[in-house]
Design a protein around this nucleic acid. Structure first.
Length: 300
DNA sequence: CCAGGTCAAGGGAGT
DNA sequence: ACTCCCTTGACCTGG
């Protein structure tokens, strides 16, 4: 059973009821209004997360990436310090229950500022903090730490002996809970980490599972076919079903643009090579792309 | 009230 | 050394 999911935003609910989990503020506002305003927005974000999970449940969606913007400016405080923390944690607990009841697999993908292989200590520290916050949110949802709820990141730096070592050193500093959730994804640039690079230099040493991104693979394949890379990544998920990423190139919809850009919809049939995996659709039309993909499948 | 310019963060790539 | 780009919505200001 290959479950399909979408990322962070539900356009239907956003349009109809202004439901969003991405409320934030600029630096000037943060300096002006501080943590109490963060708390207000985080509370609203978490309440809306529950509504999205309800929609997912009603629409048989059982894979969903939670936005990393639930808690604005969370590098600057501990979640427990928010004035509304008690209410927020109750809501997150409900979100966790709902997800479990309706068999939704929830996952995270922190943004590209997480650079565990950075040369800068500050950047490394911030990256570790960010990962710990993501893990903490899963904890608050009541999830037992495991790759059922992965936290997916890129190495996101050039592949060198030093960057590999820095990545491995940073991994040593992560909490047990983060390590039970952390997975790594192939980059889409030739100088960075392909599936094979991740396997040879990070997975072998740490056991960290590899997320296969079909689209990124097209830009950095290390001479592996899609199928070979797929199977190699698949083999690293020993205890849990893999979560892979799929997107179509925007070129199909908009001639002349950067081919790395994502399309609104999915334009191909996704090959799963007879394997049992979950797939996140990284399509700009979000849940609409998922619904359309399902509809198209039925007609085949 | 709305359109359009702007926005914390890292690092690769091109010049 | 410097700029642009990613990727993206949401903020926020000026009209």
């Amino acid at each position: 059973m290959n479950n399909l999911g979408y990322c962070c935003i539900n356009l239907t609910l956003q349009k109809k009821n202004k439901i969003t989990t991405n409320r934030t503020m600029r630096q000037a506002t943060f300096l002006d209004r501080g943590i109490s305003y963060c708390s207000e927005l985080a509370l609203l974000n978490c309440k809306d997360l529950y509504k999205i999970l309800e929609w997912n449940s009603q629409n048989n969606v059982n894979l969903f990436r939670i936005s990393s913007n639930l808690f604005p400016w969370n590098s600057e405080y501990a979640l427990e310090d928010l004035p509304d923390f008690l209410e927020i944690s109750n809501i997150l607990k409900s979100c966790g229950h709902l997800a479990t009841q309706s068999k939704q697999r929830l996952i995270f993908h922190p943004d590209h500022f997480v650079k565990l292989a950075s040369e800068s200590d500050k950047t490394k520290k911030n990256s570790i903090h960010d990962l710990e916050v993501h893990s903490k949110i899963f904890d608050l949802m009541g999830f037992v730490p495991s790759f059922h709820n992965p936290i997916n990141i890129h190495v996101g730096c050039k592949l060198t002996k030093d960057s590999i070592q820095r990545f491995l050193n940073s991994v040593e500093l992560l909490s047990e809970n983060v390590m039970k959730r952390l997975v790594i994804e192939n980059d889409d640039k030739a100088a960075m980490f392909s599936v094979k690079d991740l396997y040879e230099n990070i997975h072998k040493q740490t056991g960290i599972p590899i997320t296969f991104d079909y689209h990124h693979h097209k830009f950095h394949d290390s001479s592996l076919t899609e199928e070979a890379a797929f199977h190699l990544a698949n083999s690293t998920w020993v205890t849990h079903k893999p979560v892979f990423h799929y997107s179509s190139s925007r070129l199909i919809e908009t001639p002349g643009v950067n081919p790395r850009a994502h399309a609104d919809y999915i334009h191909e049939n996704i090959s799963t090579y007879n394997s049992d995996i979950d797939i996140e659709l990284e399509a700009k039309a979000k849940e609409l792309a998922l619904l359309q993909y399902w509809r198209n499948k039925q007609h085949v």
